[in-house]
Simulated scan of single mutants.
Amino acid sequence: MAMALQIATFLQQYIYASQHAIKKDQNALRIGILSTAMINPAALIRPAESHGGIIVSAIASRDINNAKETAHKYGIPHAFGSYEELLAEPGIDAVYISLPNGMHAAWATKALNAGKHVLLEKPVTANADEARAIAGLAEEKGLVLVEAFHWQFHPASHAVKDLVADHKFGKIIRTWARMTSPAGSIPKSDIRWQWDLAGGSLMDMTYVISATRYFLGAGAAKEVVYATARPLQEDNRIDEAMDALLKFEVDAGQVVQSHIWTDMNRANVGFLIPRVWELPSIEIETEHAIIYYYNFMMPHLYHYITIYDKRTKITTTQKHYSGGPLWGTRGEKWWSTYRYQLEAFVDKVRGKQPVHWVTLESSIAQMETIDAVYEKSGLGKRQGHE
């Protein structure tokens, strides 16, 4: 259902961004976009319209006509026919990189060497070696580099984190996270199916590991108990689906078992009906409760959080679209996960303490876990390309 969620977010952002566009600050951060990917409007262009501290100043493509067409469509002042040209532009402070997975490390490296801050689409790189390399470079240059796990910036996610972090319901016993897309919803020509671009279901649906680690407060997986891939028929190096059981160490040596499942070609019911109810979700069982967070990937569209108390046998439901334990009075109900993320990114670049942040250490641990799952499955870790 990832594609449907993205389309819905495009519409949501189009409606609300146009209604809440505001005047830009004199010293607004100027950001350029590397690629004309479909995600750009929802992830950056529309959210920036309602943020006075950032201007989408330029966009680049290897096809100048694509760059010009996109720039005209969204009112972006400058279009470039190569990524190098955009990075050489002195008036650009930061870049958003929405290139295919396998190209993330190469172009993040070039952006950092050009003195630009970087908002980098997930997964941060093709593998952990690349993640460590760009993290080290960002620290050396004193520049901001962050993996765009937008969902983590939303109040609903913080509310769930708050439920498990204070041990109100006891220690976490296990977790289970899933993400699927209906059969045929992702064309076989899509970059997500391409080995050379570090494709695969676990790479694209890396959210299941991100959510697991975030709510556990854990680093890289301690162990991959098993990892079973369903290879793509056209290229058996690519995982069409991945089913894995991981062990994470939390709270002074406690080990939690976490089941993850991704499927980019989930069979439809009776070959006809897409499983529209299978939005990205995570279940967290603690000693005294079972907490279920439905649609953690795009909670601004719709979500719910249920808490089943094992002691009272009562189930309660929560929804959070603004406020919460971290944002307080800051933010609006119509803000998307991407808008909250942008708020934090601008704060970080301006030297302020962001409400929430995805650290470089976390991104490295994320890739270490992904690598371990791929190795256990027999497919081997992904490789990067320029």
Rank of each mutant, 00 (worst) to 15 (best):
A8T: 10
Q19V: 13
H20T: 13
I22E: 09
K23F: 08
L29E: 00
I39D: 07
I39C: 07
L44W: 00
I45K: 01
A58Y: 00
D63W: 10
N66I: 08
N66S: 15
N66P: 10
A67R: 06
K73A: 15
P77S: 09
E84W: 08
P100Q: 10
N101I: 13
N101P: 07
A105E: 06
A108N: 01
L119A: 15
P123I: 12
A128M: 11
D129I: 11
A131E: 05
I134R: 01
A135Y: 02
L137Y: 01
E147L: 00
E147S: 08
F153C: 05
H158K: 09
D162W: 05
I172N: 03
A177S: 15
R178P: 03
R178V: 11
M179F: 10
S181C: 12
G184V: 10
G184R: 09
K188V: 14
K188G: 09
I191R: 12
G199P: 10
G200R: 07
D204I: 09
M205V: 07
V208F: 03
I209N: 00
I209P: 02
T212C: 05
L216Y: 00
A220Q: 06
E234P: 07
D243H: 13
L246C: 10
Q254W: 13
T262A: 01
A267D: 06
P274L: 06
R275S: 12
R275I: 08
W277L: 13
E278A: 12
E278I: 09
P280D: 07
A289P: 05
M298V: 11
P299L: 03
Y302P: 04
Q318K: 09
W327A: 00
G328P: 01
R330D: 10
K333D: 15
S336H: 06
E343Y: 07
V349G: 02
V349E: 01
P354H: 05
P354A: 05
M367E: 15
D371P: 12
E375Y: 12
S377W: 08
G378D: 12
